[in-house]
Design a protein around this nucleic acid. Structure first.
Lengths: 183, 183
DNA sequence: TCTCAACATGTCTGTTCTTACATGTCATGG
DNA sequence: CCATGACATGTAAGAACAGACATGTTGAGA
C-alpha cells in the first residue's frame, strides 16, 4: 500500500520510467522501503489503469516514462495529510536480540561487534551523503531538503544502533555464565 | 522466514501454545516483528511436520502446547550463529519523509509534532518496562536479560526518532516557502 | 441462569513481496 | 564484427502476510 503512494510521490517530482524508479529504490529509498523491479512495474500498471499516472513518452529501448496525473497528485497529498502513519516496523536485528540468550557468549560478542561496525559505517556513509546535500551539491529544492530530513533520520537510527551494540557488548547483562544454555 | 526461527526461539524457553505465542507477539516482540495468530498457527503446523517442534500436551479448551525438539534447538542456534542478518527494514515513518515537500508547511509541522510525541511516549513506556526488569521483577534469567537488551534498542531507536522529529520541526530546511508546491 | 470476556484454534481469501525466468536494445571497446 | 555491460520491461510461481470469518470452551459475575 505504501509502495503505491511512494511511486506517486516520486513521480510528483517529474516523469520517470520503471527503471528509473527501481534505481531510486535500490538507493537510499530502499533502506526504508525495499522494492524490487517486478513489484514496481506491476504497481505502475495498476496505477495507470486507475488513472493516477499516464504514459508521458516512449523512448529508445522501449523505455516508457510515466507522468503523474492531477488525480494522482491529489491522492498522494491525501495520503500524506489524512492517512494515519503505520508505526509497525520489521527489524531482524532487533528481533534476534530476544534470542541472544541462546548464543554462545563468544559468538554473541563477535556478532555485536560486527553489528556495531555495520551501523557505524552506515551512519558514516549517510553523514557523508548529507554533507554533500548541505554543501548544496544537489541544489536547494524542496525535494532535496525533504530528502535531507529523511537521511538525518537514517543517520540518527544507525548511530543509535551502533551505540546500542557497543552498550550491549559492555553490559554486564550478557556477561553471565548462563548465556548459551538453553533451558 | 524469521518468524519460523522466532517461534523456535520462544519455544526454546519452554513449551507454549499458539495462543501463548500469539500473545507474546502482540506485546514487545510484535513491535520489531509483527505476526498475527493465523500466521503463527500455520507456521507451527509446518514446524511440527518438519520435526522441529512436537506436541507436548493437550489441555482444556483444546489447548495444544508445543515443545521444541533437539533438531529445532539446533536449527535456531544455527540461524543465530550462521545466517547473515538481513539489515533491510521497512519503516513508513521514514519513507514518508521523502515526500514531505509535498505537504503544506502547517500540516507537516503538525505531523512532526505528533510523531515526536508518539516516539517520546513509546520510548518512555519502554524505559518503564526496562526499569521493572532492572529492579529484578522478572528474575535474572538469561532470557530476561536478553529481552532487556532488546528493549534497550527499542528505547534508543524511539528516542532517536523523537529527537529527529524535534530537529526537523526546528530545522530551517523545511521552513522555506516552496514546501507544498508540487513541480 | 445467563451473559460476557478471555481462552483457544483454526480456515479462507486476497494482497504484497520475492525470486527466478525471459527477452530485447543500444553503446563501447577489443 | 563481436562480446559485454548497462539499459529496459516484463511474466510466473510461490512464499509471506493481513483481515475477515468461523467455531467452540470455561469461568466469573450479574
Amino acid at each position: 500500500m505504501s509502495l503505491r503512494h511512494g511511486l506517486l510521490g516520486l513521480l510528483a517530482e517529474g516523469p520517470a520510467s520503471g527503471y528509473d524508479l527501481a534505481r531510486r529504490f535500490s538507493e537510499a529509498l530502499g533502506s526504508v522501503w525495499p522494492a524490487q523491479h517486478p513489484q514496481i512495474y506491476s504497481e505502475l500498471a495498476r496505477l495507470e489503469s486507475a488513472g493516477l499516472i499516464e504514459v508521458e513518452s516512449t523512448g529508445p529501448r522501449r523505455r516508457k516514462a510515466y507522468r503523474i496525473t492531477e488525480e494522482g497528485l491529489a491522492e498522494v497529498r491525501r495520503w500524506l495529510a489524512e492517512v494515519e502513519v503505520d508505526h509497525t516496523f520489521r527489524m531482524e536485528t532487533l528481533f534476534r536480540a530476544y534470542f541472544f540468550w541462546l548464543m554462545e557468549p563468544e559468538d554473541l560478542k563477535a556478532h555485536l561487534a560486527k553489528e556495531q561496525v555495520f551501523f557505524a559505517e552506515t551512519a558514516a556513509a549517510l553523514r557523508g551523503y548529507a554533507a554533500t546535500k548541505d554543501r548544496g551539491d544537489w541544489g536547494t529544492s524542496a525535494q532535496t531538503r525533504a530528502m535531507r530530513i529523511a537521511i538525518e533520520a537514517g543517520i540518527r537510527i544507525n548511530e543509535a544502533l551502533a551505540g546500542w551494540a557497543e552498550w550491549a557488548q559492555e553490559s554486564d547483562i550478557m556477561t553471565s555464565e548462563d548465556f548459551g544454555t538453553a533451558k
